[in-house]
Amino acid sequence: MSKLHYITRPSSLKENAPLLIMCHGYGSDENDLFSFASELPEEFMIISLRAPYTMQPYGNAWYAINFDAEKGKWSDNEQAKQSVKLIAEFIDYACGTYAVDANNVTLLGFSQGTILSYAVALTYPEKVKNIIALSGYINVDILPEAIEPSDVAHLNFFCSHGSVDQVIPVDWAKKTPAFLEALNINHVYKEYPVGHGVAPQNFYDLKAWLDKYR
């Protein structure tokens, strides 16, 4: 049984379907990114997860973001690491429960969901193939101390960010290409003239990228 609540869109294939798992942002839920599902290729088995921590009055989070007068804004990295493990365990659960191809798993994250998608891919690279990283950044504090390039050589990343993002500064995202290049990881990085959201052109580009790497 899964520790995470989720919703699904079945694949048109009876077996070996590519699997796409969605991880929403801070304060949202599993229905947010699921609105993309109808626009994505029908052969994908799509699963949208709900983050484990319930917020008040509504919404969910993968980890706490605290606002402290002394520390400023800071993330609970221990909670984040626990959620990374939960997502990794969910991938195993999904591959054992549904008729999907365990060698063709894509993570699609937004904001906090992207931060965790990066961490899952770089901590458990054997579990994933593609990562669509929307409006997030790489938090090195929740990654392994050492990443072996040969372990991550098969990964493909589509990374995008709004150039006027008021929630996660674009300067944080701009560090991503150099990080991935240092590990010789195949990646695309794009910026769009929007805030903390997904522009229509961004969605069009990620769909074209997914067609190439699915």
Rank of each mutant, 00 (worst) to 15 (best):
L4T: 13
I7V: 14
T8A: 12
R9C: 09
R9D: 06
S11C: 12
S11G: 10
L13I: 05
E15S: 15
P18H: 09
L19C: 10
I21E: 00
D29A: 00
L33W: 11
L40N: 11
L40K: 06
F44I: 06
M45N: 04
L49R: 05
L49P: 12
L49T: 15
R50A: 08
P52T: 08
T54H: 12
M55N: 08
P57F: 09
P57G: 03
Y58W: 13
N60I: 04
W62H: 08
I65W: 05
I65T: 14
N66V: 09
D68T: 04
G72I: 02
G72L: 01
N77P: 02
N77W: 05
E78W: 02
K81I: 14
S83G: 01
K85N: 13
F90T: 11
Y93M: 12
A94D: 01
A94F: 12
C95F: 00
A99N: 13
V100I: 04
A102S: 14
A102L: 08
L107T: 11
G109S: 00
S111T: 06
G113F: 02
T114I: 05
T114M: 03
I115V: 15
I115E: 02
L116K: 10
S117W: 10
S117C: 11
A119C: 06
V120M: 02
L122F: 00
L122E: 04
P125L: 00
E126G: 07
K127Y: 03
K129F: 01
K129L: 03
N130I: 07
I131Y: 00
I132Y: 00
A133K: 02
Y137V: 13
I138T: 11
I142A: 08
I142E: 08
L143M: 07
E148I: 13
P149R: 04
S150P: 00
D151M: 11
F158W: 11
F158H: 06
C159L: 04
H161G: 00
G162N: 09
G162Y: 05
S163R: 06
V164Y: 07
D165P: 02
D165Y: 04
V170D: 10
D171T: 12
K174D: 07
K175L: 13
A178K: 12
F179A: 10
F179H: 12
A182W: 04
A182F: 09
N184L: 07
N186Q: 14
H187L: 11
V188Y: 00
V188E: 09
E191K: 03
E191D: 02
P193R: 02
V194F: 13
G197S: 15
G197V: 00
G197C: 10
Q201P: 09
N202S: 12
F203R: 10
Y204K: 15
D205K: 09
K207D: 03
W209P: 03
Y213S: 08
R214S: 15
